[in-house]
Each structure stands twice: as structure tokens, then as C-alpha cells.
């Protein structure tokens, strides 16, 4: 029987990511992974790109993973998983391995996904491997010390887009990778956030049961990079959702639908002001950037509403 998505039922399940790992307190990545893996009752096999989630869970001779897990390199979680999945299909077909409805999931950070790993990801989903690729998006290369990625929000201070006297933080709007993946016309693409945990878990179930390649982009706050308190992860994440910076939606067999619509759209400023990485934007000379960001978020949100038939 499928586990009901209620706190009571979910609490009975064994954690697949064991406690004792060395991710920072309040790290969004850990919350995302635990929620997602709790949503799946079937056996899973995981691949993990180099990044915070990888280094903090497998410091030899320890491993926090109670499920099969492989890390290969930074940019190749998708291609590594395509090999694992191909091996599974081959060996099951030949009768060398018992079929067990294994769910294959690859995790990569935004750096490992939007940037250096996008080619491998695009190739793997085009080939139709049955796996779910999850980008836990914390908006920078956190593991190497908070450098900008193409997922870093406009204006954010990172160590390679510092808030300087002349250039106040990142000058580009973020890449919309979820749309890029939807353009691959694969069976399932979704954007999710751990602050809407049931939504995230339902999407996870759809993704691993869609019968083909699936992609999920999940917002995963990094309090070290975003600069907020460790106990504010969920709150700050929900502000990203409610400001429509991070809309929750899915694209199922080409059908776009919103899975959550904020009752009242919160100004982006409310999300920005909670994070130290944007503090320089609140200086007089930089405030125009907040307006620019609001405009861009609005533009993207309107477009999305149209796509989802809500325009």
C-alpha cells in the first residue's frame, strides 16, 4: 500500500538519508531530499553530483545513505545515472537481475545542473532514460564558497558577483531552467519547494511514476549563502513562492498547470529583505534594482499564468 502523505504515516518510515550528516543546520538540500525520499515507497538508487549534498553526506569512511548511492563527478550525475539505468534495463532484460520497480534519481545542485551539467542532463533526458533528475537550487556554488551560477538571482551578492562600489551584485536575471527542461518535451517537469511539502511529495511521486525521464527543480535555501537564520529556511522559501519568484507548477505530458497560486502576491522586496545577500540593494543608489527585479518576476509570472491557462 502506498504511504499516505500525512505527517503521522510519514513519520513511521525509516529515513533514507540518515541523521549525522554534515550539511549545515537548516540546509534546504537535506530537507528537500528527506521529503522526496519519504514520498517514495519503492527501492531507489541515487546519483549525486559534486556539491554540498554530496560532500557533506559521504565523508569516508562514513556514509549517510541507507540506499544505493553513487557520486562520479560534478557535471555528470545525469550521464552517470543513464549508465546505471541502462545497466539495470540490460540486466533485467537478460534475466541477470530481478526486476524490482527501482526508482532512479539523480541529484545535482544548480551549478551542477544549470551550468556545467546541462549538456549531460539534456542528453540523458533526450535519450529517454527512466529516471528523475532533481536540481536542488540554492542559487550559487555553495560548496566552493558561494560563487554565482546562472541560477543566482539578479542583484545577489556572491563571492564572484560581489556587491562592489561600481557593480552591485549579479547583473543578470537567472536562467529559467525549468522551462528549458519543459522544452525537452519529456513526460514530467515540475518546479517545487520544501515549504509546500505535500506538493513536493506529490510531484515526486508523479515524477518517478511517469514512465520516462522527469525533471524537478526544487528551491533549497542555503542559509550560508542567502544569509538568513538557520531556523528561517522554510519561511524564507515560502516567501520566494508567494512573491512568485519561485512559482510552483508542473508540466505533465506537455500540459502546464500551476499547483499553487498565492492568494495574495507578495512583493519581491519582502523576500529580498530577509536575506543578507540582497542587503546592498536597499541602499539608495541600488534600489532601482529591486524595481527591475520586480518587473522581471512579474513578466515571467504573467507568462507562466498564460501558459497554465490562467492568464
Amino acid at each position: 500500500m502506498v504511504t499516505k502523505l500525512t505527517p503521522k504515516e510519514l513519520a513511521k518510515k525509516e529515513e533514507r538519508l540518515a541523521p549525522g550528516h554534515r550539511l549545515c543546520a537548516g540546509c534546504g538540500a537535506a530537507i528537500v531530499v528527506r521529503q522526496m525520499l519519504a514520498a517514495i515507497d519503492e527501492p531507489v538508487v541515487l546519483a549525486n553530483a559534486t556539491g554540498c549534498l554530496e560532500v557533506a553526506t559521504t565523508i569516508y569512511p562514513y556514509s549517510s545513505w541507507r540506499v544505493p548511492w553513487i557520486h562520479n563527478a560534478f557535471e555528470n550525475a545525469a550521464s552517470t545515472m543513464s549508465g546505471v539505468e541502462a545497466a539495470y534495463r540490460s540486466m533485467v532484460r537478460q534475466g541477470k537481475l530481478e526486476e524490482k520497480d527501482v526508482k532512479f534519481i539523480a541529484y545535482g545542485g544548480d551549478g551542477g545542473t544549470y551550468d556545467i551539467g546541462i549538456q549531460a542532463l539534456s542528453g540523458a533526458v533526450e535519450r529517454g532514460h527512466q529516471f528523475l533528475y532533481v536540481c536542488y537550487d540554492n542559487g550559487a556554488y555553495m560548496n566552493t564558497g558561494i560563487q554565482r551560477s546562472s541560477a543566482t538571482p539578479f542583484g545577489a551578492h556572491t563571492t564572484t558577483s560581489p556587491a562592489g562600489k561600481v557593480i552591485p551584485g549579479k547583473q543578470q536575471f537567472r536562467k529559467d531552467l525549468t522551462k528549458v527542461m519543459a522544452a525537452h518535451d519529456i513526460p514530467y517537469v515540475a518546479q517545487a519547494a520544501p515549504s509546500k511539502w505535500r506538493d513536493l511529495m506529490q510531484k515526486t511521486r508523479k515524477a518517478v511514476n511517469c514512465g520516462g525521464p522527469a525533471f524537478m527543480n526544487v528551491l533549497a535555501s542555503c542559509n550560508r549563502g542567502w544569509r538568513h537564520e538557520t531556523d528561517e529556511t522554510i519561511e524564507v522559501t515560502q516567501l520566494a513562492v508567494d512573491s512568485c519568484f519561485w512559482p510552483l507548477y508542473e508540466v505533465e505530458n506537455g500540459e502546464w498547470s500551476l499547483t499553487y497560486k498565492p492568494r495574495k502576491k507578495v512583493p519581491v522586496k519582502k523576500w529580498l529583505e530577509r536575506q543578507g545577500r540582497f542587503s546592498h540593494l536597499f541602499r539608495d543608489e541600488n534600489r532601482h534594482m529591486i524595481d527591475e527585479m520586480q518587473e522581471e518576476v512579474d513578466r515571467r509570472w504573467e507568462k507562466l499564468l498564460e501558459r497554465c491557462g490562467e492568464g
Binding site: P43, V44, V45, E54, V55, T58, I59, Y60, Y62, S63, W65, R66, V67, P68, W69, I70, H71, N72, V84, A87, Y88, M91, L97, K100, V102
Partner: peptide, 12 residues
């Protein structure tokens, strides 16, 4: 692929 006896490949 031995899901009964999980292994960690490629740790730090």
C-alpha cells in the same frame, strides 16, 4: 544495483 545491501560509491 543491490538494493537490499546499499553501497556508497565515490565518497569524499
Amino acid at each position: 544495483l543491490d538494493v537490499e545491501d546499499p553501497k556508497t560509491y565515490g565518497p569524499l
